Computed example of a mutant assay.
Amino acid sequence: MKMNKNWTRLWLLVISLFVLIGLSAQLQAQGEESSLDESAVLEGDYDEGVSFLRQFVIEGGPIVWFVLMPLSFYSCYQAIDLSIKTSRKILLPQENTEQLKKIAEKGDKEVIKSAAAKQDDLLSYSLSRAFNLVKTKEVGYMGLQQMISDVLQERTLEILRKVERLNLTGNISPMVGLFGTVFGMIKSFNTIVEAGGQPDASQLAGGISVALVTTFWGLFVAIPSLFIYGYLRNKLEAMASEAAVEAETVLDKIEDIY
């Protein structure tokens, strides 16, 4: 819990920092020329005249500063946090599994309940919850098996709902980027109309920058988010299946008790 709070504080600090950078950049840009000098572009001095910060952050406008950049850091936070929470050491540690198997071999049901209640991994949680439900219901061995399967599925879906946040971020960010692209192109066409059909390249730079930079940020957020989502989902499903097999192994050792 303490680790989660620390990650949340770090995430909020990073987001606040970049919001401040965006605001200060906007104020600075108001006092500067809003686009590149056309002669500098024609002479090939574009790389020298534009920094990475200006090209990929400042020129993107508020859509990048206040939506896409925060989304990128939110997805990073979720990816790191969920990678830790879905690691094997937390969800299905080998030492806990072996300990429960050894206890089950002794055939003491109460000791198994006590040992499972002390841990929060998938196997221990499903066994502990199922044993507690047995107290309120008259079920046999087959009923206990079904309870463990249901509890394990419920626990897996609970974790999957958290992993879905990455999927949501990965699907929203391209839409936000597309919105910025459409906005930038409308701005560029308006510039062409205002210039009587013959605008300077510098007049179009603002709208084109918004159009391209927002698309860039949308894809920059979406691609790793969806990749990590798919990886974590497959990893979690594999561990849930393994936990079900291990739970069945433990139950086989205490079948005679029921």
Rank of each mutant, 00 (worst) to 15 (best):
V250K: 09
L92P: 05
E138C: 05
F227S: 03
L219R: 02
E246N: 13
S24H: 02
I186Y: 02
M175Y: 12
F189A: 10
I84V: 14
V213L: 03
V245W: 06
K2I: 15
I208H: 07
G230L: 01
F220P: 11
L27S: 10
S173M: 01
F227G: 08
G180H: 02
G196P: 03
E32Y: 05
E48D: 07
K235M: 07
A205P: 03
M1I: 07
E246A: 14
R88V: 04
S87I: 07
F183N: 15
T191G: 12
P199C: 11
V134H: 15
R129H: 15
G60V: 03
P62K: 03
L219M: 09
Q153H: 09
R165T: 10
V67R: 00
V57L: 09
L236W: 00
P174I: 13
Q30Y: 01
E95F: 08
K106C: 03
V250E: 04
I21V: 12
L219T: 09
V210P: 07
G207S: 06
V67M: 13
L232G: 01
S173N: 05
G31D: 10
A104F: 02
L127H: 01
L12K: 05
K102W: 10
K162L: 12
N96K: 12
N4Q: 06
V111P: 12
R88T: 09
E154D: 15
I228P: 01
L91Q: 02
Q146K: 08
L157G: 07
K137F: 10
G196W: 04
K5L: 07
V213N: 01
T156N: 03
L133A: 10
Q94S: 14
G140A: 01
L91C: 09
E242T: 00
A211W: 00
T97R: 09
S209F: 07
P62G: 14
N234Y: 07
L71F: 12
L152R: 00
Q146S: 08
G107N: 11
N167W: 00
L133H: 04
V139C: 07
D121P: 00
I84Y: 15
M69E: 03
M185C: 14
K253S: 15
A222C: 08
K253V: 00
L42P: 07
K235G: 04
L127V: 04
I112F: 00
L100D: 06
L168M: 11
V176K: 01
L100W: 11
Y125T: 15
A29N: 13
V176F: 05
S209Q: 14
Q55M: 13
A240K: 00
V57G: 04
M3V: 15
